[in-house]
């Protein structure tokens, strides 16, 4: 709690709270970051599930830099919005649910990366992806939808 109070008193947190446009700007950039992150993850996951087969899977995995770029933008803007209201967000159940779901989405993405490295040769250019990969893709869609839902709920709990 002391740490949260300290965060909220840092010069940058004070600057955000005294500015009329900074928070709205961070929130808007966070929204664009969300579109980059979830928009590209969704395209990759849906392709893994068999949607839009005329777009080659290896090229679709080439969209991963968009995922990372969106993630980075949202870590930065999300951290700035957090410190502005640290004592409140730090006690917010929806915020901690969001962080938990993001950690799970990260582990799920790690499992996918390992699977691509180990067995990718066999299925990246095949007509059908293995059942295990489809489960990972479905989990990814569900987890990121959960992250978005929990994120929106933060403003209401």
């Amino acid at each position: 709690m002391d740490f949260l109070v300290w965060l909220e008193s840092t010069p940058i947190a004070v600057a955000i709270s005294q500015s009329v446009w900074m928070y709205a700007t961070f929130e808007t950039i966070h929204y664009i970051g969300l579109a980059m992150l979830v928009g590209s993850i969704m395209l990759i996951d849906l392709r893994l599930l068999g949607f839009a087969r005329s777009l080659p899977l290896p090229s679709m995995l080439g969209l991963l830099p968009w995922v990372w770029c969106g993630f980075f933008i949202n870590v930065v803007t999300g951290s700035l919005m957090f410190i502005y209201n640290a004592t409140s967000f730090g006690m917010n159940k929806a915020f901690w649910l969001k962080m938990t779901l993001m950690a799970l989405a990260g582990l799920n993405a790690l499992a996918f990366t390992v699977a691509v490295a180990r067995t990718g040769e066999r299925w990246l250019t095949a007509a059908e992806t293995p059942a295990g990969i489809k489960i990972v893709a479905t989990l990814s869609l569900a987890l990121w939808l959960g992250v978005m839902t929990a994120g929106r709920w933060m403003a209401y709990v």
């Binding site: 929204y31 579109a35 928009g39 978005m148 839902t149 929106r152």
Partner: peptide, 25 residues
């Protein structure tokens, strides 16, 4: 209703990601 507005906002953000993701690419 407490949950209706945030639920609709979440769906609106999801729809935006679908639209911007597919049309963006």
């Amino acid at each position: 209703t407490i949950w209706a507005y945030p639920l609709l906002e979440t769906l609106h953000a999801l729809g935006m990601a679908m639209l911007l993701g597919s049309l963006g690419l």
